[in-house]
């Protein structure tokens, strides 16, 4: 029986879609059978981050409305045979789907996949309600900024109210140099404030931009972000992985680069 994980944040632009793409790809690398669902109806993006935008025929709303079979709408990843994407509709809006329908869909997918990962839209309206409806676990993505952490707190409250059993936090776009000079909150600072379990700290890494340009998630490569995302995947499947020392690793890499 698979696990349904929703990736959410409240605030937009903190890295939900990037996290979804990397989590899904990383879990597929670990030989898990994974389906990614883009629930951001009207503003789909997961397809381009995954590099699968040219392969879309049917979408989430087609499946819900019964215009096609579920299997027909699932797009297989370019690289990984056990990774699939169910894209959002671009021409509909969030009210085309109800939480009950989403719950039914994820229940159906649970029989077939190890992990069902939902990319949640920003906000706390209908799209959010749809995305969390069938979720067993939530990863809340935030950045070390006052606005993003505030929204994360609101989201964590709403997840609790909706009886999501497990909520964990990913702190994204950390800059060790800024943290060191006291100009950015650390992941520990954020955890102190939000009182929730930390599952990942991802550095601000320009390789993410390159990976998104190419439509190939960087999880598992030698970049700091690639390693950080792979560690998150390992923690998701239950492994105990120590947190990366972002500062120390950076030192080693710059040393390599100089050579």
């Amino acid at each position: 029986m698979g696990e349904v994980i929703v990736i959410t944040s409240g605030k937009g632009g903190v890295g939900k879609t990037t996290t979804t793409a990397n989590l899904g790809t990383g879990l597929a690398k670990l030989n898990k059978k994974v389906v990614l669902i883009d629930t951001d109806i009207g503003l789909r993006n997961l397809d381009v981050v995954m590099g699968l935008e040219n392969r879309i025929v049917y979408n989430l709303v087609d499946v819900i409305e019964g215009n096609c079979k579920l299997k027909q709408a699932l797009i297989r990843d370019k690289k990984y045979e056990t990774l699939f994407l169910l894209p959002a509709a671009q021409t509909k809006d969030k009210t085309s789907v109800t939480p009950e329908q989403m719950k039914k869909l994820t229940e159906e997918l649970k029989a077939e996949f190890d992990y069902i990962i939902l990319d949640c839209p920003a906000g706390i309206e209908q799209g959010f309600k749809n995305a969390i409806a069938g979720a067993d676990r939530a990863l809340v993505v935030t950045t070390p900024e006052v606005s993003a952490v505030r929204d994360a707190d609101r989201i964590i409250g709403l997840l609790e109210a909706n009886e999501i059993k497990k909520t964990q936090l990913v702190v994204n776009r950390l800059r060790p140099d800024m943290i060191k000079r006291g100009d950015m909150m650390s992941a520990d600072d954020v955890i102190d404030i939000l009182a929730v379990e930390l599952i990942g700290q991802v550095p601000d890494d320009e390789n993410i931009v390159v990976a998104t340009n190419n439509g190939e998630p960087l999880v598992g490569d030698s970049s700091l972000a690639g390693q950080a995302y792979m560690n998150i995947c390992r923690r998701v499947i239950g492994e105990q992985v120590p947190f990366l020392d972002l500062e120390a690793k950076k030192g080693i890499f710059s040393w390599f680069r100089k050579k």
Partner: peptide
């Protein structure tokens, strides 16, 4: 430091 300012402001607003 500005991160301390951020923490204090966040605690209050939350």
């Amino acid at each position: 430091s500005s991160s301390d300012v951020a923490k204090d402001r966040l605690k209050l607003v939350l």
